[in-house]
Simulated assay, not measured.
Amino acid sequence: MNAPHRPAGKAPMDDVTLYGPASWEGPPRRYGPVARVAVLSDIHANIPAFEAVLAEPDVAAAGLVVLCGDLTWGPQPQETYELIAALGDRVLCVRGNADRFAAGIGISGERAATPRQAWIAAQHSPEAMAFLARVPFGVVVEIDGLGPVHFCHGSPRSDHELVTPGTPPERFAQLSAALDARVLVTGHSHLQFDRAVAGLRSVNPGSVGLPYHTGEPGTAYWALLGPDVRLRTTRYDAAEAVARAHLAADPEAERYAATLMEPPTPERIVEDAEDRIFVN
């Protein structure tokens, strides 16, 4: 999700294109049981933040690392792919809207509407693009103390639906109606929270690479699951992340830096997200 620009109003559901599982996917694959799962989301190719979180002892010791989408769409997408590949079988990824969009431009020939869209796609090797095209829409992991946990990026019905601490119980019940799990973990909103709603538990680990928060710049957000949910933060060098964006010649380096250093507040994001609901 990008920093908000308020629209005239939200579109009715009938007018929204949903981006759910790809044609080659069946039901989400199931994994586990696992004692501990580290959950990282919305890395947005911020290598200093990603490396700092991966270095956390609890992440290194976790049985699985789940990356909850939007791995790419930032200054260092190829390096991000290489770090993910190095994790091997310890990592499970789910597809974010940014990952879908990058693969659409790089593989399916969708038109890039801006210079940065073209630039992002060009930063991926063929192997990285092939990887993005294979990332599934969602996974389910059996975690000690929590039972089956469903992981996706936006919501179980679309990778670009926003779930926030302000999502009304009625909409949450609708988007989670098909779940075979009591815990839903999503990303996309870049907000960290743990909330009981509509008889389920709604968790967002927050964003590693581009959080919306009121904390100090250089704070990466993530979560440790099992036997309960622990919301965590890690400090990293935000100035280095900004420098790398400029060094990479990211066409939107200035906007990226501004969002890292002066992010929109969670209150503003919740208001905007609940007004728009679906944001690519």
Rank of each mutant, 00 (worst) to 15 (best):
T214P: 06
Y236D: 02
Q117T: 11
G218V: 00
A102Y: 03
A49N: 01
L67C: 03
G20F: 10
V39L: 10
H5A: 14
L146Y: 06
W119V: 10
R134C: 10
A38N: 09
P165C: 10
R90K: 15
V141W: 02
L132F: 07
R171C: 09
V185H: 01
V135S: 00
C152F: 05
Y19V: 06
P4W: 11
L200A: 14
T114I: 13
T167W: 11
Y31M: 08
E82I: 05
A102P: 00
T186Y: 05
A3T: 13
C68P: 00
A239T: 03
D144H: 13
F278I: 05
P21S: 15
P75V: 03
G145D: 14
R157M: 15
R276N: 13
R201I: 06
A86G: 11
A173G: 12
V185R: 00
Q76M: 10
A121H: 04
P148D: 11
A245T: 09
S189V: 01
G9L: 13
A55N: 14
L225C: 13
I269Y: 01
L40M: 13
L231P: 11
E51W: 00
A86T: 08
G215D: 12
H246A: 11
R195F: 07
G88V: 06
A253L: 12
L54H: 05
C93E: 05
D250R: 07
V39R: 04
A220I: 04
F101L: 06
V279K: 10
R95F: 05
P28K: 07
A8H: 13
V141C: 02
